[in-house]
Design a protein around this nucleic acid. Sequence first.
RNA 1: GCCUCGGUGGCUUAGGGGUUAUAGCGUCUGCUUCGUAAGCAGGAUGUCGCGGGUUCGAAUCCCGCCCGGGGCUCCA
Length: 630
Amino acid sequence: MRMLQIHSDGFSYEAKRKALKNAEEVKEKSYNTEDSCLVNFIAAETTDAKNVNAAIKATSEMIANAADEVKEKNIIVYPWVHLTESPSKPSVALKLLKGVEKDLKERGFKVVRVPFGWYKAFRLHCKGHPLAERSKVLDISKEIAKTADVDVTEGEDLTALVAEEKSTSEFFIMDPSGKMTPVKEFKYAKHKELELYVNYETAKDRTAQEPPPHIELMRQLELVDYEPGSDAGNFRWPPRGLTLKKAVEERVTAEMVDYGAHVVQTPLIYDYQHPSLKSYLQRFPSRQYVVRSGDKDYFARFSACFGQFLLISQALVTYKQLPLKLFEIAPSYRREQSGELAGMRRPRAFTMPDIHEIVADVEMAKTAVNNQLVFVTKLMNELEVTYEVSFRILRSFFDENKEFVEGVVAKVGKPVMLELFDERYAYFIFKGEWNVVDEQKKAACLGTIQIDVENGERFNITYVDAEGKEQHPLILHTSPSGSIERILYGVLEQAYKDLKTGKVPHLPLWMTPVQVRLVPVNESFIDYCVSLGKSLDKAGIRYEIDDRQQTLGKKIRSAEKLWIPYICVVGEKEKESGKLAVRRRELKDQVVMSEKELVKEINNKTSFAPKQRLLLPKMISLQPIFSREV
RNA sequence: GCCUCGGUGGCUUAGGGGUUAUAGCGUCUGCUUCGUAAGCAGGAUGUCGCGGGUUCGAAUCCCGCCCGGGGCUCCA
């Protein structure tokens, strides 16, 4: 439904002649008032046909709200098909308009409905105040997901939401030996965070007074910040944060290349009308950004699935190439409800490392899960956060593959939460989640492994089997690390937990934007620092030089506030001895070491990560302050 | 999206229907040239989130909007 609302001084119309054969029969062909009124030009759209009653309810609600805002009691309901490019059938439109008329009258408004299906002359006079001209759009697919009195008998409209309500689940803890205990009976004494995680997932205890601590930290460390000039939940990354972001992206990409992935890049926006996408989208409530181009609507992707599925569905794949892996660092968009947004835990725009592994059958899928487990565990450990693991499994799959699940849990090596659900509510039959629990006792999922039994067929993805026949594969959806934003959320919340327990908060050395800061005692040693920096450059170590004219104490403080792990004071002693006075954050000590030793120490600790350059000038005097304190 | 709380120089913040809006940090200038978490002095920086209303007068009260936090919901 699309609607144009004009708050008018006076209104009149005159029905001239029928525009449709089945135009409404009317007694009064004209109407005239000089009273003020709210004129609503309304176009019913094809989507409204899915649930006319919900459309009526929502439309009259919009009109009533608008009328209340401008303190208007007189309502004109005017059929105006030209507002939309996809009008509904006339019968639907008439039903909508009549329903709106009835509903508004019941609400106590004085309503005049202008005849449907006629060519009409009309006159109005817009009042011209700020609320006098407005347009409204109703997306009825959203309402269908919400409203109870919907007929969901047409299979295509069955949403995941509705299916999930029907599905029943049981929750267990499975320990590495395979022993299963209902979550309420498990002894959590040695597994406090698992208890918090289970509480969050089952009891849904979600009260918090304070804002999540990572939000203040991400700004103080100048990693990422809100962008008031964008949509809510879209963030900007100043160079320090971008350095970290790229370091993580490169790290995950390297691991995926080692795993044998084909690295690709696919478009950000997709056609609503594409047949495969259409049926995929209909499984879910609409949470997409819409992009209008020309006269068509596109949606911004909410994961890399579409692009990769479309790419591989048009590729020639043989069984010899399976398992086949496609990987992408996928900037993605989900238009979460405004009240759901929370810093880096839940943004609307995020960067998702996403791998899809195409396998022939369940056996190959199980092998793939075991292989993927290795890198997910490795990457999660590299984040230096504590995490809890859970598996959500279709009960029939679990019953048939109990040994496999036990093997997986044994590999995880600690008790995990197990959810068994009776009815499949999404595309997966098996889903592993690696979650962090934050200071607010809320959980968020980072890494995930899912076995998808639906989309191979939906996207017509095929491979040629040994007999030369085309087969639909199963697909594993996996984010090895979770989104970069969630990772940052995880490491900052972990740092805050450390801070509260008396430990030194830190970012993992391999991803921290600046690994070394050289601090000359006065400006006469800046040149020497520059020459020291040349060998750090060669070693691929990220550093900067505090060339500001400030006291040493202040420069140290400045570096500490940014959690820089190695702070090197450079003065006469260092220049003469060729050694460095190094203040190590992790060990809270001060040691004298040669530059070579320092490089060796850092390289040993970060050997697994690709070298990422620092994405800003090294001289601090040249760096503007984006959001850090000093 | 609904409910709720908030928005005062770049940051943190005082104040609150009535003269030129408070302070600290940062920034700039000068002095200081310093050895491991804040050297000294002086200067500049505010459409008090935006728009409308009430009022002789609004940062302050009212309404709408934007942005953020929390709750509900949601998390493909």
